[in-house]
């Protein structure tokens, strides 16, 4: 239970950063932290006490295994987050070039 709470706390760190920070890079980092919290959550509920790795090895008879599917899901979601982060960073670089500032509150030509 304590692990789930800590995972949730990590998620809240991300939410806090997203809501209060004004720096472009810090916003991107907050989103990344939220993503890691979700990935951790996925891994956590796949965990089973005293279970082995979900891989068939030669000559080893496996008892109970942890759930392998969430690990595959996490791998996919990491790839997706990598793509999102790369795109966000590219956009941030361009924004800084155009507006000459990292402050999100000063980047507002669009309104309404």
């Amino acid at each position: 239970m304590i692990l789930y709470l800590m995972c949730f706390a990590l998620f809240l760190v991300g939410v806090y950063g997203l809501l209060t920070k004004r720096d472009l890079i810090k916003l991107i980092l907050s989103i990344a932290v939220m993503g890691y919290a979700v990935n951790l959550f996925l891994i956590l509920f796949a965990y089973k006490k005293d279970a082995g790795i979900p891989i068939l090895l030669e000559g080893v008879v496996q008892g109970s295994m942890v759930d392998p599917l969430p690990q595959a899901l996490v791998l996919t979601s990491i790839v997706i987050e990598l793509g999102t982060t790369a795109l966000l960073v590219a956009l941030a670089i361009r924004l800084v070039q155009k507006y000459k500032t990292f402050d999100i509150t000063k980047i507002r030509r669009l309104f309404g």
Binding site: L82, A86, V89, A90, I93, R94, Q97
Partner: peptide
């Protein structure tokens, strides 16, 4: 290539 492009973006 992603890192390469990002490094050259500036």
């Amino acid at each position: 290539l992603v890192v390469w492009v990002l490094a050259g973006l500036h």
